[in-house]
């Protein structure tokens, strides 16, 4: 299935979690999220947890964590 992170396409398996999509997109970004340096927001601006399930076509956005 296709999901979007900052409007960039990520192709990932059906039933993937956010962590799977991030690993597919950029293991470095995945590490940043795990370390709390970056948040992943849904299209409403809410924080999505790494273990959250994704839907086809879902739009997500990165946000640097405020220091």
């Amino acid at each position: 299935m296709l999901v979007y992170l900052d409007q960039k396409e990520i192709q990932v398996f059906r039933g993937a979690r956010l962590m799977d999509a991030l690993l597919a997109f950029s293991p470095k970004l995945f590490d940043k999220v795990v370390n709390g340096d970056c948040l992943i927001l849904d299209r409403f601006g809410n924080i999505t947890e790494l273990d959250g399930p994704l839907r086809e076509g879902q739009k997500l956005f990165t946000q640097k964590t405020e220091l």
């Binding site: 299935m1 990932v12 398996f13 059906r14 993937a16 799977d20 690993l23 597919a24």
Partner: peptide, 16 residues
């Protein structure tokens, strides 16, 4: 799922 997400390989099926 780690292989699925991070390994590059040819596949027409996106996996389930």
């Amino acid at each position: 799922s780690y292989i699925s997400a991070t390994y590059k390989f040819n596949h027409r099926d996106s996996g389930t």
